[in-house]
Structures are given as structure tokens and as C-alpha cells.
Simulated scan of single mutants.
Amino acid sequence: MEGTEPTTSESTGREGNQEANQTVLLTSKPLHRFVQKEPKSLGVVILIFGCAELLMGFQLAGETAYTSNHIYIPFWQGTLFIICGNLSIYTAVHPSKKMVTVCLAMYVVSLLGILVSAVNRLLCFPFITDIAFSMEGDIWSNYRSEQLLCVEIILFTSSLCVSVTLIFLSIIARLALKSTQNQVIIQYVSTTPPPPPQE
């Protein structure tokens, strides 16, 4: 009876060492290095920008002037931002190669959307400015056009801020996927039998 106790404690110690080794292997994986770059926090930021874009889209929907809403930019770009934000948060909580690949694809699609919206908003600025100058006699119409111009400038600036965040996330996601493909983990498991119990 006394001889079996050391063997049990020794096997428990080995199991604990194997669990510790698994933890070390998990933390050294490139996907977990991706999580260390705080995609969850950045995802929350992108999510807030997406909600703001959608809310401004409802405001621009009632305007008759030529704005970015004529091709529904605030709605689809806000939706892309919300999807990217949610994916970043989910991937930070449940990291996997598949989810990082999906995130990377959505980051690239959102960046292309930002490029389209930036060009379109740059084209909208002169039209809104012309409306403001043509209605100098009407104070309220002039004030309304200036508000529209400010909204478009704010949305343009916020999309540029999100693009910087998405470029950063795309780079770390690509590096994580690239190093995951090239990584080889060798784990040595000792097969020596435990020493015989001492009587």
C-alpha cells in the first residue's frame, strides 16, 4: 500500500508537466501572437465606427442633395465595419487558422470598400460646396448644406482612421497565417518506465 503512493504522485506530476508543455506550445503559436496584438480592442473600435456610419446613413437618406448616400455608401460600409469588428472580437476569443483567414478576407474587402467610398466622397465635396455658395441668400439652406459637408468630411475622416486599423490587422493576420504554415513543432515525450516501488 505504501509503495503505490509515490507512483501515483509521480504520474500526476508527469501529467501536470504535459499540461504545462501544452500551455507553452499554445502560447508560442503564431495565432496566439495575433491575439496578443489586441484584435478584440481594435474590433470594438471598428464596431463603433460602423454604428456611427450607419446612423449617419439614416440622416443622409432624407437628403435630396448629391451625397455619398446616392450609392448607399454609409449603409454597406457601416455593415462591413460591423462585420469586421464582430469577427475581430470573435477571433480574439476563439483563435483558429480558419477564423483568422476569414478575418483577413473581410479586412481586404472592407479596405476596397473604403477606397471606393473615399473616391466617391471626394467627388461629393465640390457638389455640396457649390450648393452652399449658390444659396447665399437663403440662410437655412446654406446652413443645411454646410452641415452636410461637415457630415461627409467626418465620415471620410473616420473611414481613413478605420483603414489604418484594418491595414494593421491585415498585416498581423497575414504574418500569423504565414508563420503557421511554416511552423514545425517537435515535442519529446519520455518513454522511460517509472522506477519500481520501493518496499
Score class of each variant (00 low, 15 high):
Lys97Ile: 02
Val45Cys: 15
Ala52Gln: 15
His94Leu: 12
Thr23Ile: 03
Asn69Cys: 07
Ile73Ala: 11
Pro95Asp: 00
Leu42Trp: 08
His94Arg: 08
Val93Ala: 02
Ser11Phe: 12
Leu60Ile: 13
Ala20Cys: 03
Gln77Lys: 00
Ser41Met: 10
Leu87His: 01
Ile83Arg: 01
Val45Pro: 07
Thr91Ala: 07
Leu80Cys: 03
Leu26Ala: 07
Gly50Met: 10
Leu31Val: 02
Gly113Val: 10
Asn69Trp: 04
Glu38Gln: 14
Val24Cys: 02
Ser110Leu: 11
Phe75Met: 05
Gln18His: 14
Pro39Gly: 07
Thr91Gln: 01
Ser68Val: 14
Asn86Cys: 03
Gln22Tyr: 06
Thr27Gly: 02
Leu55Met: 11
Val45Thr: 12
Thr7Phe: 13
Asn86Arg: 03
Thr4Gly: 10
Asn17Pro: 00
Leu25Pro: 00
Pro74Leu: 03
His70Glu: 14
Asn86Trp: 02
Glu5Asn: 13
Lys40Phe: 15
Glu15Ile: 13
Ser9Cys: 13
Val44Glu: 15
Ile73Leu: 06
Leu104Thr: 10
Ala105Pro: 11
Lys37Ala: 14
Ser28Thr: 09
Leu104Arg: 11
Glu19Pro: 01
Leu55Val: 10
His94Ala: 04
Phe58Ser: 07
Tyr90Lys: 06
Gly85Pro: 00
Thr23Pro: 01
Val109His: 08
Asn21Val: 08
Ser68Glu: 09
Leu111Phe: 05
Ile71His: 03
Thr8Ser: 09
Thr64Met: 05
Tyr66Lys: 14
Gly113Arg: 09
Val24Ile: 08
Leu60Gln: 15
Thr12Ser: 11
Ser11Ala: 12
Ala52His: 14
Gln18Arg: 14
Gly85Thr: 00
Thr101Cys: 09
Val102Gly: 01
Asn17Phe: 04
Pro6His: 11
Cys51Gln: 12
Leu80Trp: 00
Phe75Asn: 03
Leu26Ser: 04
Leu112Tyr: 08
Val108Lys: 13
Asn86Thr: 04
Ser96Thr: 08
Phe49Thr: 08
Leu42Asn: 10
Phe81Gln: 03
Thr23Phe: 02
Glu5Tyr: 15
Arg33Glu: 11
Gln18Glu: 14
Gly57Ile: 06
Val45Phe: 13
Glu53Lys: 06
Ser11Gly: 06
Gly43Cys: 11
Ser11Thr: 15
Met56Arg: 07
Cys103Pro: 04
Val108Tyr: 12
Ala61Ile: 03
Gly62Ala: 09
Met56Thr: 04
